[in-house]
Amino acid sequence: MTMFILRRIAVMILTALCLTFIVFFLTNLYPNLEKLAKTQGNFRMSDGEVESYLGKNGYLQPVGVKYGQWLGVLPGYVIEDNEGVARGRCIEPGMPPEDAPRRCGVLQGDWGYSTVFKKDVFEIIGEKLALTGKLMFWVMLLMVPSALVLGVLAGMHEGSRTDRALSTVAITTTATPEYVSGVLFIAVFASTAVGLKWFKGTATSAMNDATFENFFLPVLTIALYGMGYIARMTRASMAEVMTAQYIRTARLKGVSFYNIVVKHALRNALIAPFTVIMLQFPWLLNGVVIVETLFNYKGFGWTLVQAAGNNDIELLLGVSVISVIVVLVTQLISDIGYVYLNPRISVS
């Protein structure tokens, strides 16, 4: 088992390196840097000025070198400008160059500085991640149990009226992306035009003080889209298990229907949905970005939009690293859980 996890982790690290490099490469393309220079300096910079600005800040080094520095495996650049003042990646303003550490990158905990928020990237991400964590916690709490119940109930008697009704619900929710359902919910429950006004159309206040009124709509919006998908998976898996020969064996052993479902079918039927739930994370992140934008909840997804929209390279890189890691960790958990749930796979 340890061997298996180690191998998975090795693959995971390789994947993370590849992915962050792709992000690094794309964000450090010259047009992006040019835009950065102009937003940092002024918009009427000439090409030459742009170049000298970028050169001074170490942006014109080869992308591999820059990536190594950002990662913290290569020493940070030190460039002396015309006045003989050394500027360097690791040299904080006002710090003598000799005191600066040689390497400063993600591995050393130095995630850079956000040009939009004027704050340390690491700090921003920590703060935003906590907010999104809160959102995700409630989403999972709502989504997973209701999806499983829905799926099991529908798959228990395949083709029955309950099945048809529940399946239609599930299909409808999978066909409703967050930006549609969110808009519909706000229109129905929060607009003056309809006038129900049960919930709030923004969740900004939920950042500090989440209540049912200001938090339920965003949570529901994310949960609903994923729920249909998991429910359909569970239903298919359950329906398949219910036609299996060993379920017939159990029935002809005289086991009651309730016990057939609970003792014999459930564990087998939950293997497939479990992996699906875990693999939903990259997808849920989509939902998070949309919903946080829609409800103006300033969490991780909202930050991603801000960083990308304003060409805040360091922040965008930080956000990417975190989202990639979250995705990979959930994949690892899904693999391990699968082995644990399914006794047919033995890890010796």
């Binding site: 299996a244 020969q245 060993y246 017939r248 064996t249 159990a250 029935r251 002809l252 052993k253 005289g254 086991v255 003792k263 014999h264 564990r267 087998n268 293997i271 749930l341 399914n342 006794p343 047919r344």
Partner: peptide, 21 residues
């Protein structure tokens, strides 16, 4: 009666045993 008075044995032994039990 099922399992108690009348019991049944099928063709595919692997399929008639619950894999997760």
């Amino acid at each position: 009666i099922r399992g108690n008075e009348i019991a049944m044995i099928y063709q595919e032994p692997m399929a008639s045993l619950n894999p997760a039990m």
